[in-house]
């Protein structure tokens, strides 16, 4: 019973903040509402017992990406600019289309006979760590090392774009 209340509480708040995020007229507020949605998503992960994933969600998404988005918003020229307020009629029709899509998706998903598979319920951090660094069967050591190369590529690309080296060279 209590679990159901928490589920609907989190889901309701997430829907509320998502709608606020797309309907607000100020950019910075939209970014902050998105941050709330991400934190509530972490709440969901805690709720279903994926503690590590919840930590990742909190640290990377709400701690990193949301901050990145806020800073990107702060970089725009005129932050005082207000978006046009959307007329109610448009809300209703876009909302209707979204609702129809949601109903279709839920009905389709419910057609699939989901089954609980035994033996995969342990998602503790130590199990993740062992699998991540294991060289044997079912180990993920190669993807793990490839991630570092991916991050390296991201870092180099970010520096090149932010420092504007490419454009400087073209000007010469």
């Amino acid at each position: 019973m209590g679990a159901k209340i928490i589920f609907y509480l989190i889901a309701g708040l997430m829907i509320l903040f998502s709608i606020l995020s797309v309907s607000t007229t100020r950019v910075i507020r939209a970014a902050v509402y998105l941050l709330f949605v991400m934190i509530l998503m972490a709440g969901f992960y805690f709720f279903v017992g994926y503690n590590f994933l919840a930590g990742v969600q909190l640290m990377v998404y709400s701690g990193g990406i949301a901050v990145l988005i806020v800073i990107a918003v702060l970089l725009v020229h005129n932050i005082d600019h207000r978006m046009e307020r959307i007329p109610v009629v448009e809300y209703l029709w876009k909302g209707g289309v979204l609702l129809a899509g949601a109903i279709l998706t839920i009905l389709t998903i419910n057609q699939f006979p989901f089954q609980r598979i035994a033996g995969t319920e342990d998602v503790s951090v130590s199990r993740i760590g062992t699998k991540l660094l294991s060289l044997g069967d079912g180990g993920y050591v190669l993807p793990f090392e490839v991630i570092s190369i991916l991050l390296l590529a991201v870092m180099v690309a970010a520096i090149i774009i932010a420092k504007g080296e490419v454009y400087k060279n073209e000007e010469k």
Partner: peptide, 27 residues
Amino acid sequence: KVGYFLIAILFLIFDVETIFLVPWAVV
């Protein structure tokens, strides 16, 4: 300043790195 954005991206990358260090630290 655009510099803030660069710092934020670098922070994000090392944030992800830290997340990958946690499972190792546990085991």
